[in-house]
Amino acid sequence: MSDDNKETTGRSGPGEDGRRERVIGTPSPAREKALLAEDDISAPAGVGEQLDEASMKRAERIVATFFLIAFAASVGFIAYFIGWSGRDGGMHGVTRTRESNFWLGGLMALSFLALAIGVTIWVRRLMTSKPIVQERHEMAADEETKAAFTEDFLEGAQDSGITKRPLLRRTLLLAAAPLGLAPLVLLRDLGPLPEKRLRHTYWAEAVEKAKSEGKKGVRLVVDGTNKPLKVSDFASPGSMITVLPEGIEEEVPEDQVLTQNAKAVTILLNIPADQFKPAKGRENWHINGIVAYSKVCTHVGCPAALYEQTTHHILCPCHQSTFDATEAAKVIFGPAARPLPQLPLAVEDGYIVATSDYHEPVGPSFWERG
């Protein structure tokens, strides 16, 4: 190597374009520059100069403020859930669902956000930022290692300020306490259990009322128009329509209409008579292939509203449970545990009528345990 080359590698100087060139082996000038401003609230306390006690007290008050905000938001979440959301149907009604979602989601998000900001400032401003090296050893620790761990743990606790800063410790516990109670409060949405409510629908009341008036049964009306359905109106094989018992809109109290409709909603199918296979004891439950099944899937209660005309399969779009409409809606695919309940039908004065309620509970199978 020439003397010129040796001289070049031992120093740094301006290049041809006037800029200083970094020589191999010299330290980077970037190490001499601070990446974070000393007065930056997000800068760790161990970077640059150590903060004085006044600055640390200020950061402590900021952290405590965020913890108090988290506590207030959590308490607001619980209070709204128990109190205001229970009025006028609350989140269990249709009219106030959007309002409930807005307040519950906003308060919970604010609580988690304030807690996260407080912890972040605590770590970055009140804890030292020094490198920690963890060596790998045998899984079984000896007494010396255990003692070292205990010492490091106590040192870390002391360094974090959790022991010497009671304001932070108390406000952190205060902020976290309601968050621990929130899941218990949300258990309210799992109940109450329906018990025997799904074993009977409005079909039973409507049929009983019709028979008390000397009729054979209650007429089926088209959902949406409330028009009574004649056999001649439903004469095309492969058809499907959603029906309800006549009078449900007029007889049921307004605050219960949605619930009663949800239980009584029924699909009416017209299956070619030569392909229909009535179950034993249900030979008279259909009208030349016109058959009625509950629209509520027996898996988790989704509407089984899809019908394949070529295969005569009823499908639930939620979890792909499939029922054979030609054989008492038995399950042929999917997670549903039992067939769709069937509604007994008859003809009176040309109209399709139901002669009784469903003989099985409607809806998900697990409710039968109640």
Rank of each mutant, 00 (worst) to 15 (best):
residue 103 W to L: 09
residue 2 S to Y: 06
residue 4 D to S: 14
residue 15 G to V: 09
residue 296 V to A: 04
residue 109 A to R: 07
residue 61 R to L: 14
residue 364 P to D: 08
residue 159 D to C: 01
residue 346 A to D: 14
residue 13 G to S: 07
residue 278 P to F: 14
residue 60 E to L: 10
residue 203 W to T: 02
residue 72 A to V: 15
residue 218 V to N: 02
residue 247 G to R: 01
residue 230 K to G: 04
residue 281 G to N: 07
residue 94 V to H: 14
residue 198 L to F: 07
residue 262 A to F: 06
residue 61 R to N: 13
residue 189 D to F: 15
residue 127 M to L: 09
residue 357 D to Y: 02
residue 368 E to Y: 02
residue 364 P to N: 12
residue 5 N to F: 14
residue 197 R to M: 13
residue 26 T to G: 12
residue 110 L to E: 10
residue 222 V to W: 09
residue 267 I to G: 03
residue 368 E to Q: 14
residue 122 W to H: 11
residue 339 P to Q: 03
residue 143 E to Y: 06
residue 147 A to H: 13
residue 367 W to T: 13
residue 73 A to N: 06
residue 234 F to H: 11
residue 83 G to R: 07
residue 175 A to N: 02
residue 322 T to K: 14
residue 99 E to W: 06
residue 72 A to N: 07
residue 161 G to S: 11
residue 236 S to D: 13
residue 112 F to N: 06
residue 27 P to Y: 10
residue 64 A to V: 12
residue 307 Y to F: 15
residue 43 A to M: 06
residue 266 T to K: 03
residue 96 R to N: 13
residue 225 T to N: 03
residue 278 P to S: 13
residue 255 D to F: 09
residue 365 S to W: 12
residue 81 F to E: 08
residue 246 E to G: 00
residue 328 A to M: 05
residue 68 L to C: 10
residue 233 D to V: 00
residue 265 V to L: 12
residue 280 K to G: 01
residue 133 V to E: 12
residue 311 T to G: 04
residue 73 A to T: 00
residue 291 V to R: 04
residue 358 Y to E: 03
residue 169 R to M: 13
residue 160 S to F: 03
residue 7 E to V: 03
residue 220 L to V: 05
residue 206 A to N: 03
residue 208 E to A: 14
residue 111 S to G: 14
residue 323 F to W: 13
residue 256 Q to T: 06
residue 185 V to P: 00
residue 39 D to I: 06
residue 219 R to M: 03
residue 187 L to E: 08
residue 45 A to Q: 14
residue 107 L to F: 14
residue 60 E to N: 01
residue 128 T to E: 13
residue 101 N to D: 11
residue 94 V to R: 12
residue 248 I to V: 07
residue 58 R to H: 13
residue 232 S to L: 08
residue 250 E to V: 00
residue 203 W to G: 02
residue 16 E to M: 15
residue 328 A to E: 08
residue 181 L to P: 05
residue 122 W to E: 02
residue 99 E to Y: 06
residue 29 P to K: 10
residue 45 A to P: 00
residue 117 I to E: 05
residue 270 N to S: 09
residue 169 R to H: 10
residue 88 D to R: 00
residue 329 A to G: 05
residue 134 Q to C: 09
residue 42 S to C: 11
residue 48 G to R: 09
residue 223 D to G: 00
residue 148 A to V: 03
residue 296 V to F: 06
residue 162 I to G: 02
residue 136 R to Y: 10
residue 287 I to S: 01
residue 41 I to N: 02
residue 191 G to K: 10
residue 100 S to F: 15
residue 251 E to M: 06
residue 295 K to M: 15
residue 214 G to T: 03
residue 85 S to N: 08
residue 310 T to H: 13
residue 176 A to I: 09
residue 76 G to C: 09
residue 303 P to R: 09
residue 237 P to H: 08
residue 101 N to R: 05
residue 219 R to L: 02
residue 123 V to H: 04
residue 311 T to V: 01
residue 197 R to E: 14
residue 300 V to A: 12
residue 165 R to C: 05
residue 248 I to L: 15
residue 19 R to I: 00
residue 345 L to W: 05
